[in-house]
């Protein structure tokens, strides 16, 4: 007991007056140094392309870029949530294809725009729900489950189109989703920004978002806190399917046609953007802003190099190299993407 009195003194240190705001700021900075890093790369690249091509930094090109990236920006939001739970959804590309094909078929069959729109969203949500059910209630790993649905959903898309692209005619409100403009800004870009803001609020300000992060960090502890983690995962995958379908409608109405291969490789672009942004593939760490910057980084590399007349094959090689480089930097310089405990 004597040694207790000796060490008690350390305990009686005066309580440091707490400055929550500054602690919060330093915490944010240390959590987001990676975000600052990738944002700097984005700015550097933009400056580089602005000087090396005359057409890069023009309003026209920027708006065009926004419109092209809108579907990625929309799907990256939900993919960030999925990956933060330490899951993955490989089926978004196929769902996007199916949705674009289905909306084209339904509109050709003279369905009302609204009903066609809602029906396609329901189909997407149903695929996501099935994914989520198998993942959370039957406990099959998300990679396998969504790989399988990626295959069968693409099969469905091929089946209903017969492999052809189906053109969409008419000029309903639906067409303006993909091609419309509001004060010269593409409607799809405005929708994307809204979805990003909603996604950010969900991830950082709601119970649902907290449990998504918690599930990625330590599923068991969230379960022990009395949270229905199965339901949370189920809903996450359901929204993933629904939002992918929504992005499919946007692409179809922009291109004026639906086809079964429009989403090929789409899921990889989105996952790459999420990882570039700093969200951990092992879950527990998710950043909406990072994912958005990731989409722009991939998009700008593609756009800028295309404007510089670089061969698309070489662009693809560069994109892969950038992703690899970013993941290595993230792991070794920022200590992210490592399995904890």
């Amino acid at each position: 007991m004597t040694q207790a009195d000796g060490t008690m003194k350390t305990e009686k240190k005066p309580f440091k007056p707490e400055r929550i705001t500054s602690a919060k700021t330093t915490q944010w900075l240390s959590n987001n140094k990676q975000l600052i890093g990738i944002f700097s790369v984005l700015i550097l690249l933009s400056v580089f392309f602005s000087f090396s091509t005359s057409s890069f930094f023009t309003t026209g090109n920027m708006l065009n870029l926004l419109q092209q990236l809108a579907p990625n920006l929309i799907v990256v939001v939900i993919m960030t949530l999925v990956i933060t739970t330490s899951g993955i959804d490989l089926s978004v590309g196929s769902i996007l294809s199916l949705a674009s094909a289905l909306i084209a078929v339904l509109l050709s069959a003279r369905w009302d725009s609204f009903f066609a729109f809602v029906f396609v969203l329901i189909v997407g949500a149903a695929v996501g729900l099935l994914n989520g059910y198998i993942i959370s209630y039957l406990r099959i790993p998300p990679f396998i489950v969504t790989l399988a649905s990626m295959i069968y959903v693409e099969g469905c898309a091929l089946l209903i189109t017969g492999g052809y692209s189906i053109s969409i005619s008419g000029s309903s409100w639906l067409m303006s989703l993909g091609g419309g403009e509001l004060f010269t800004i593409p409607v799809s870009a405005i929708i994307a920004i809204l979805i990003i803001i909603i996604g950010w609020i969900i991830l950082t300000q709601t119970r649902f978002g907290t449990y998504i992060i918690g599930i990625g960090a330590n599923e068991e502890s969230v379960r022990r806190a009395g949270v229905n983690i199965k339901k949370i995962k189920l809903f996450t995958y359901m929204f993933s399917g629904m939002i992918a379908a929504f992005a499919g409608i946007i692409i179809a109405t922009r291109l004026g046609s639906g086809s079964s291969n429009v989403g090929t490789g789409f899921e990889m672009d989105v996952i790459a953007a999420v990882v570039l942004g700093g969200t951990s593939l092992f879950g527990g760490i998710g950043t909406m802003l990072g994912s958005v910057i990731g989409v722009f980084l991939i998009g700008i590399i593609n756009n800028g190099l295309t404007l510089m007349n670089v061969s698309p094959y070489i662009i693809q090689i560069i994109q892969g190299a950038v992703l690899l480089f970013a993941v290595i930097v993230n792991t070794y310089f920022f200590g992210r993407n490592k399995k904890r405990n």
Partner: peptide, 12 residues
């Protein structure tokens, strides 16, 4: 095992 979520803050 404490059952804490490492990446969430103390209050959460």
């Amino acid at each position: 095992d404490l059952a804490l979520c490492d990446t969430l803050d103390v209050a959460s």
